[in-house]
Design a protein around this nucleic acid. Structure first.
Lengths: 217, 217
DNA sequence: CCGCAATCCATAACGGCGTTATATCCATAA
DNA sequence: TTATGGATATAACGCCGTTATGGATTGCGG
């Protein structure tokens, strides 16, 4: 085809791997999981189907790479939340960035947490470990809530962070599926969940409401 | 072909439609979404691929029928929970049967609530309305919690039932995806969620814990 | 009874999918 | 220079959902 053109290029050989990953992420974000296929990706980058297998081994393995990079973006957002003097506010902000990521990249999010099989991809135990790592930051925030006296001293941070995880995941998925209908939207439900979470953990209702409002505004 | 085997049969003509639906539900339950294909279904019932299109029009339409029957089974379980003197106990039992259904038919459940596309199937607004109808019973139970004084008088049943929905869905999906790891399992998280839900809504902590224990035991 | 329309269904095909066997480039090491 | 090994293009295999075609069966009005 274009041998002469490629030889003209002084750059290092085409990083086909990166091109495929970027195109996969783009298609997934812009057109959804149904549009993601090996043949389409290789056509977009001007390669043959073999490119997928030399660089990734299989389509599920390519999807796994896309997911791993999604996890890194997710971790980047979560770690950007700085601790402050109000741990309930910090917890609220963590949940806010969680929902923001799920809304920004709903299909990558769905792959990360098992909501989508996507071309036969299935989560490995290692994948799940990576997802669980996201809970460390919120768990520490809950511990600070306990240490600061906002939450009861006998509260169990490990159980509470799982409860919070369940709530964030359920909200993200139901909102994406269009199941949060009627007068209350996802943001209303999020505010209610966070306030009730803090109150049940022992926080003063008024103070909890103020921290949540501040963290979501 | 005058030796017509079909005339020997005294039964009404083969209800191919029913056979396909049952086989689809069976494959989905026993082997998961990846195993569900038109060609496999028609081979199992001894028909040709046309059977799918004469009776359903498309594979997504067949999946929709499977989902509708799943919703009916779900509604059957939910409606089997009888009101009693303890509305918090009733709410707990409703959540228990919710989790039981999600655990018994995880793939049908995933289709119902948008967690799985399954051969291009996508939820319509009518499908979602059907799913939302499942919330009527728990919403009434929450209203009884308020009326009986267990929950605060100014609690909002419509918001609370959405929060509860989010929690039940998140737990069902994460448990199915294998994301509830470590010392606490799905049942522990469920107990914590329900207790905290009631406490935040205004119930006495001890009383809430007793109702939840009673409803989950 | 005949003929006609409608319905169901089997066959075969189309295009797309993931995957793989094979052969060919081409850069680098010996 | 030759040899080696990785990346790639080509073509094929067996799936998939879907559809065009034509044959069989059924029910019904004449």
């Amino acid at each position: 085809m274009l041998w002469s053109v490629s030889s003209r290029s002084q750059e290092p050989a085409s990083p086909v791997r990166r091109l495929l990953l970027d195109e996969a992420a783009r298609v997934l974000a812009e057109e959804g999981p149904a549009a993601l296929s090996a043949r389409r990706l290789v056509k977009a980058v001007g390669a043959s189907t073999m490119a997928v297998y030399t660089h990734f081994g299989s389509m599920p393995a390519l999807v796994r790479e896309v997911m791993r990079e999604g996890v890194e973006r997710f971790l980047g957002r979560v770690d950007a939340v700085a601790p402050g003097t109000d741990p309930v506010l910090e917890l609220t902000e963590l949940c806010r960035v969680y929902q923001e990521f799920a809304r920004a990249e709903p299909d990558v999010y769905a792959v990360m947490f098992g909501g989508s099989t996507l071309a036969g991809f299935e989560l490995t135990q290692g994948d799940r470990q990576m997802g669980v790592a996201l809970l460390r930051h919120p768990r520490d925030a809950i511990r600070r809530c306990i240490a600061s006296g906002r939450f009861r001293a006998d509260a169990d941070a490990d159980l509470l962070v799982r409860q919070l995880f369940v709530q964030m995941h359920g909200l993200a998925q139901l909102a994406h599926a269009g199941y949060i209908l009627g007068i209350y939207g996802p943001d209303d439900v999020l505010a209610g969940l966070l306030r009730d979470f803090a109150v049940a953990a022992g926080d003063d209702p008024e103070r909890a409401a103020r921290s949540v409002r501040s963290g979501l505004g």
